[in-house]
Design a protein around this nucleic acid. Structure first.
Length: 267
DNA sequence: CAATGATCCTGTCCGC
DNA sequence: TGCGGACAGGATCATT
């Protein structure tokens, strides 16, 4: 499932692919995949990419003509450039038509992904409230101490709450807690400041390393050029039977999602 | 305000 | 071999 590093990888690939091309159209093949701002002028195309940003797991592309795109891959969404996809995919939900006959395909098996096309001025209406960026300077042990204060919620649940911290999903939350030696069910408000500082530092380290490796290709994540990421080779606990120290890994459910942890290493 | 549960969707896996 | 059912899982919405 694409989380922050995977979204960053895709965004980097998409912006590189689009920088010398014009977007001439956007086809939707599945009802609901493409959402159009009712206030948008009838046809915003042709348009060019003017800028971009990532907020949590959301990609935002700023186009010419005061128009913007919000793209969310959700669980199985993929953006694949035309050359990398010779055949037809039965799961193609939308497609950007580009200059020079090129295409950018939106492939999404489970159809949860979304592409929003809106007036740039209306971005706020289409974006949810998102918490702090974990790679920002303000993401520190002290910040987490304030965020977690008096909260009895298990720490892993808060790590995955996008309105508190934007961009972490099941895989990275699981990995970060293992590397921080924190038990995923620990009530968030009970964790000491030194351990929260460790948590913040490990979060940044894991995300940076994963971005450097072009993300984690678990299930079917692929880059825009359809190549795999590399961070799955560095996972220490997610979907493992034993931790790096040889202890047996336990699997539990938290908020409907699978959590892997080591009862010996994580307290 | 916080926490929980249902919902969306389909490929994969398991048991019979 | 084939079928049904459980499962996975991010975000949203409704409910407690």
């Amino acid at each position: 499932m694409p989380e922050l590093p995977e979204v960053q990888t895709v965004l980097d690939g998409v912006t590189e692919y689009l920088k010398d091309k014009e977007i001439r159209g956007l086809d939707c093949f599945y009802p609901g995949t493409v959402v159009k701002d009712p206030e948008l002028a009838k046809n915003p195309f042709p348009a060019r990419l003017n800028g971009h940003e990532r907020r949590g797991k959301y990609m935002i592309l700023h186009l010419s003509g005061e128009t913007s795109l919000i793209i969310h891959l959700r669980m199985t969404g993929k953006l694949v450039q035309g050359e990398a996809m010779p055949g037809k995919s039965p799961h193609e939900r939308a497609c950007f038509l580009l200059s020079g006959g090129k295409k950018l395909h939106f492939i999404d098996i489970r159809t949860f992904g979304k592409i929003v096309l809106c007036k740039t001025a209306n971005l706020g209406k289409f974006m949810p409230d998102l918490g702090i960026e974990p790679l920002s300077a303000g993401f520190t042990g002290e910040y987490l101490a304030r965020l977690f204060a008096h909260r009895k919620t298990p720490v892993k649940n808060i790590l995955m709450d996008q309105s508190k911290i934007a961009g972490l999903g099941n895989i990275y939350a699981t990995e970060i807690l293992y590397r921080s030696r924190i038990h995923p069910e620990t009530p968030a408000g009970e964790i000491s400041l030194p351990r929260l500082s460790k948590l913040a530092a490990e979060t940044k380290a894991v995300l940076k390393q994963a971005i450097a490796m072009n993300g984690t290709s678990i299930s079917d994540f692929r880059r825009v050029d359809d190549k795999s990421g590399g961070f799955q080779n560095f996972l220490q606990i997610y979907q493992k039977d034993t931790c790096p120290k040889g202890h047996e890994v336990k699997k539990i459910k938290q908020g409907g999602r699978g959590t892997f942890f080591c009862p010996v290493c994580q307290k």
